[in-house]
Amino acid sequence: MILHGYWRSGTSYRTRIALNLKGLTYDQVGVDLRQGAQRSAAYLALNPQGLVPALEVDGQVLTQSPAILEWLEETCPEPPLLPVDTGARAQVRAMAALIGCDIHPLNNLRALKALRQDFGADQAATDAWAGHWVHAGFAALEALVARHGDGWAWGDAPTLADCYLIPQIYSARRFNVSLEAYPRLLAIETAAEAHPAFIAAHPDRQPDAD
């Protein structure tokens, strides 16, 4: 497997976590989003959308981290990242989508670049923008973890929801978002800081990190 990604990308981060939780070995190729490497002809040949991550495996290229994570669950079912019960699986997917659909797209590099270039937002304004959407999503997620969590977002073992959550907490800290109102989410962060799969996936530990 070859993972094309960017060390600080939340979508690349969540993919690394899932690969590590599955115990899979993969090589990494850095795609520097700041330098526009995602728009190079070579990368667009892999992923015409020009986004990270892209996973080369078995002669094919998989894109979009939700699809990659679902593919991993289907092809490498152990350890499972989704519960057995279909209703519980839907709940975990909903928790992941809360982050992947309703928080992350609004504070990723493309969105913030548009805020700065098209609307003249300074750093304080972009931080406030990111914080608004983080707080809206994390308040709901805190309540869901209170219902379903037992050390992790759902139950007592990492799931897809945690693969999404930890990178979003990392991103929230980059934008100076106060997280004290979310003790259950911070407890999951503490658990992840002691888990080898999450440790190895941290942006600072990646070969292309600054």
Results as ranks from 00 to 15, higher is better:
Trp7Asn: 00
Thr11His: 09
Ser12Cys: 13
Tyr13Lys: 00
Tyr13Glu: 01
Arg14Trp: 09
Leu19Gly: 02
Lys22Ile: 01
Thr25Ser: 15
Tyr26Val: 06
Asp27Pro: 02
Val29Ser: 05
Val31Trp: 05
Leu33Lys: 03
Arg34Val: 11
Gln38His: 14
Ser40Gln: 14
Ala41Gly: 08
Ala41Tyr: 12
Tyr43Lys: 09
Tyr43Arg: 09
Gln49Ala: 12
Gln49Ser: 02
Gly50Gln: 02
Gly50Thr: 10
Leu51Glu: 12
Pro53Thr: 06
Val57Ser: 05
Gln60Arg: 11
Gln64Phe: 11
Pro66Phe: 12
Ala67Val: 05
Leu72Ala: 01
Leu72Cys: 02
Glu73Lys: 15
Glu74Cys: 11
Cys76Val: 06
Pro77Phe: 04
Pro79Gly: 01
Pro79Ser: 14
Pro79Met: 13
Leu81Ile: 03
Leu82Met: 05
Asp85Tyr: 09
Asp85Phe: 09
Thr86Cys: 10
Ala88Cys: 10
Arg89Thr: 08
Gln91Thr: 08
Met95Tyr: 04
Ala96Ser: 15
Leu98Phe: 03
Ile99Gln: 10
Gly100Leu: 10
Gly100Trp: 15
Cys101His: 13
Cys101Gly: 14
Ile103Gly: 01
His104Ile: 07
His104Asn: 13
Leu106Met: 11
Leu109Glu: 07
Arg110Asp: 03
Ala111Lys: 00
Lys113Ile: 08
Leu115Trp: 05
Gln117Glu: 14
Phe119Glu: 04
Asp122Leu: 07
Gln123Thr: 09
Ala124Asn: 11
Ala125Gln: 03
Thr126Ala: 09
Asp127Cys: 04
Ala128Phe: 15
Ala128Gly: 04
Ala130Cys: 14
Ala130Gln: 13
Gly131Leu: 14
Gly131Cys: 11
Trp133Ser: 00
His135Pro: 01
Ala140Glu: 08
Glu142Phe: 07
Glu142Val: 05
Ala143Ser: 10
Leu144Gly: 13
